[in-house]
């Protein structure tokens, strides 16, 4: 689908917990295929401290209702304002942006590892992988059980495992210490990950050490979102690449991570 800028009507704003919202946005023009991993750059209204757009993964797409959803974790003025957007108001959105996760040609056993707002880019992916009959496992980490949201939604597309730092749900500790990563890692043909960079690096290190295919989705700060400002670069084996156009998804072998 071509990149567009459209005013999207908020038709649902689900408050998932204290600081997470799921917004369903109605697209006036007919949606074409949006690939898992692609994102939207949203304009924040009525927030004097916010100048630039804010990027969010496209969480899910409903081609029948012609809607896209975004999952918003409130961390600052922009995300707070967007999270509080009332139903029936409009959000000016630039989308779809960026590349996408590579989907295997044949069904495989696949692990998704997400943390924080990074789980947002994995929902559309889990759905797509499930549709193509892959055997999907989803590992999600959070600080506490209250931060674990949308697990039921994820469980429609695969087997869900969780960790919490305080042990209130799932295994206690960081995602990267979960037993599935420790004991069963070798069974997975592919790993996809999105979340805090230290988490993705740990997952990437594990994948690299066992030569497992691994893609990560980066969240570098952005000014434009469509490849013109060159502010969002990451170092790759081919030099600086823009996370907004060459990414946000990168194969770990492309990145210059010291892992």
């Amino acid at each position: 689908m071509r990149k567009t800028v459209q005013n999207l009507k908020v038709i649902e704003n689900l408050q998932l917990n204290d600081d997470h919202h799921l917004l369903q946005l109605e697209v006036p023009d007919q949606l074409e295929t949006i690939f898992p991993g692609q994102f939207a750059n949203l304009l924040v209204n009525h927030s004097p401290g916010v100048f630039l757009r804010r990027p969010f993964s496209i969480y899910s797409v409903d081609y029948i209702k012609n809607t896209i959803s975004v999952f918003i974790k409130e961390i600052g003025e922009g995300t707070r304002a967007l999270g509080q957007t009332p139903v029936n108001s409009y959000i000016n959105s630039m989308f779809p942006l960026g590349n996408s996760f590579t989907i295997p040609n044949e069904p495989e056993k696949i692990l998704l590892v997400g943390g924080g707002s990074g789980v947002a880019s994995l929902m559309n992916l889990a759905q797509e992988l499930n549709k193509n009959l892959n055997d999907v496992y989803i590992l999600i980490g959070a600080r506490s059980s209250a931060d674990l949201v949308e697990l039921e939604h994820f469980s429609q597309y695969g087997t869900v495992y969780t960790t919490t730092e305080d042990g209130t749900q799932g295994e206690k500790g960081y995602v990267t210490n979960h037993s599935i990563l420790r004991d069963q890692f070798g069974q997975f043909k592919r790993i996809y990950s999105c979340g805090p960079e230290p988490m993705m690096r740990a997952v990437a290190a594990k994948a690299k050490s066992q030569s497992v295919f691994c893609e990560v989705s980066l969240e570098n700060t952005m000014a434009c979102g469509f490849g013109v400002c060159l502010c969002c670069v990451t170092e790759t084996i081919e030099g600086h690449k823009c996370v907004c156009t060459d990414g946000p998804v990168f194969n770990i072998n492309q990145l210059k991570w010291q892992i």
Binding site: G49, V50, F51, L52, N220, T221, M222, A223, C229, L230, C231, C232, V233, T234, E235, G239, H240
Partner: peptide
């Protein structure tokens, strides 16, 4: 030119700072 290292952008009040460095 490869330009400068990341981070290259900081949003400020009614504006932004960049340090792309002619990539």
């Amino acid at each position: 030119r490869q330009g400068n290292a990341y981070p290259r952008m900081a949003e400020t009040a009614s504006g932004m700072l960049n340090s792309v460095g002619l990539q």
